[in-house]
Design a protein around this nucleic acid. Sequence first.
RNA 1: GGAGACGUCGCAUAGUCAGGUCUAGUGCGCCACCCUGCUAAGGUGGUAACGGGGCAACCCGUUCGCGGGUUCAAAUCCCGCCGUCUCCGCCA
Length: 423
Amino acid sequence: MIDLRLLRDNPDVVRASQTARGDDPALVDVALDADARRRSSLADFESLRAEQKALGKQVAKAQGEEKHQLLTRTKQLAEEVKSRQADAHAAEKELDELLYQIPNVVEGAPPGGEDDYVVLKTVGEPRDFESEGFEPRDHLALGEALGAIDTARGAKVSGARFYFLTGIGARLELALLNAAVDQAVAEGFTPMITPTLVKPDTMRGTGFLGKHAEEVYHLERDDMYLVGTSEVALAGYHADEILDLSDGPLRYAGWSACYRREAGAAGRDTRGIIRVHQFHKVEMFGYCRPEDAEAEHERYLAWEEAMLAKAGLPYRVIDTAAGDLGTSAARKFDCEAWLPTQQRYLELTSTSNCTTFQARRLNVRERTADGTTRTVATLNGTLATTRWIVAILENHQQADGSVRVPEGLRPYLGGLEVLEPVA
RNA sequence: GGAGACGUCGCAUAGUCAGGUCUAGUGCGCCACCCUGCUAAGGUGGUAACGGGGCAACCCGUUCGCGGGUUCAAAUCCCGCCGUCUCCGCCA
């Protein structure tokens, strides 16, 4: 939720943000109007309520005829209070619904849509397979030859976009995720294994039930949601709390299964495990002071790049355009690894600065030096996911169908240097 | 799944049976000041969050797990839900 005060004091900032995202700037004025109605109906209700309470005290003391007269007045008043309260309630709800439709205010992201990202840098050289003298195989062909990935049986058991990681494939994923957790712990993150089913309030608070609600699995019978990332649980972790950030930002590394319906992706990335309904992820998530959020965001990006280095992948970093930001993000950097068989970059990490947007919805505040409270900022960023296996297999493959294990992962595979095809 | 107890402004508790004097008391903790040559102890005052109004001092409202209801009036009575604990049943 955006800051109501910002909306009132600087509506132009919010209008400009809406325009940058390709959303309707008029929503700002509709919300301002609703806010004015809310405040006036609230004032009406509150003054009547104050009168009712004052009279109520007299009723308690009065006797006989005086009490009788007071009661006839207070009974009338009660009716009116009730109706004004209902008005105030309705106005509040109306404003709330409007505010929920306004995504976070963009901060520094380039204007435009999905294709208008800005490449911040490119790291590492894509291999020249032609000069090496062989045609690279895609991750599924490699994974099947290595006995690492089984999508056929995944489909048999659970349907399209499901898979089994088998043998060395399962070990490779564990190695990757363990490397991510170890790095995070070394940097001072608290490792967390999080719930993957959450209540509606938590899912709504993190901003995933807006435009992208179609992406989320919902369990009708229990009214619970399957999370698409541990960000959801970690954002909810401190909901309704007042934090002490005097020792610096809080940093958590969440390890969880992630579930996505991929409703809007029909026909895209159908081969292999690039786009699947279930995968695992180690996610950085943190709380910090609003003025520290931008610098913290840069650190998250640096930690992602450190992981990519461990995996030995060529990649680029993009600054996502305003129109392609998630509801909660004010700015987002993605790291995309080179995918040789598709001659394109594939998103492996994404780090968002959500400023105070998520925290305001989830009511996460900090105690400031002068004793007051204020809303904190939240950030998130990917450290490793199942999808990384795609890039690792393709980029480190050799002519004989074997795959070199990147050095950063070898300690997690008992020193194994090469993955060999199984017969 | 069944039965019961419980949920109060950081923590611990009083208040709920008998609705109005609860503007929610007290202890601990915390903050400021005072006193004491230091320290310990002691004294005085302050100390929940959110919203609305006001330049401000301040005033008003909401919140006693959450949501409804009864009533002129709800921490207190009624209903539903959530959570914690205890016992029973069932299952891994």
